[in-house]
């Protein structure tokens, strides 16, 4: 008798679990659609536009010339399709990631800004991704970067 009761309770539990599993939505949370149309980098010191994409087709400062050992602090600002900036500080679901073809230049993301670090001389190409939680929301065109040897570098640091 007790076995039968236990069996009934077990069947009910399994049936209830199956029903709940079947009715649970596969995608429980709706993530708002985010679309970034362009990416602007302003200089951390002067707050002027350092370089930007135009219609996400090309960079206005290509090639970018850096000096070996330079660490350039950049403030990234994604723009939406209206040209309005998307606030990276309040939108914690967005971040800027960087990719370099060669390892002589790396991107170090910080909160609301980032470092473009020229480790060694040479040429490379970098691109930036506006990363939205699980995926890239914007992939910029490749940006040609030239890193001059420290000795040959004429730019003031």
């Amino acid at each position: 008798m007790r076995g039968a009761t236990l069996l009934k309770q077990g069947v009910r539990l399994v049936a209830a679990s199956c029903l709940l599993t079947a009715c649970e939505h596969p995608i429980a949370v709706v993530t708002p659609h985010a679309e970034v149309a362009d990416l602007v980098f302003s200089d951390s010191a002067s707050a002027v536009v350092f370089m930007r994409t135009t219609d996400n087709r090309a960079w206005n400062a290509s090639p970018l010339v850096l000096c070996e050992g330079d660490t350039h602090t950049l403030v990234p600002k994604p723009l939406d399709f209206r040209g309005m900036p998307v606030d990276l500080v309040s939108r914690r679901d967005l971040e800027i990631r960087g990719e370099s073809v060669q390892a002589n230049v790396v991107w170090e993301p910080l909160r609301g800004r980032g470092w473009l670090i020229a480790l060694a001389s040479g040429t490379t190409r970098v691109r930036f991704l506006v990363w939205h939680l699980t995926h890239a929301d914007l992939v910029t065109p490749w940006l040609d970067v030239q890193v001059q040897p420290r000795a040959a570098c004429t730019r003031p640091r």
């Binding site: 596969p26 995608i27 709706v30 659609h33 699980t134 995926h135 929301d137």
Partner: peptide
């Protein structure tokens, strides 16, 4: 019908 989508570059709206 409750339709949703997510993932990389997902353009389909829920």
């Amino acid at each position: 019908r409750d339709f949703r989508a997510e993932g990389s570059f997902t353009g389909t709206r829920p």
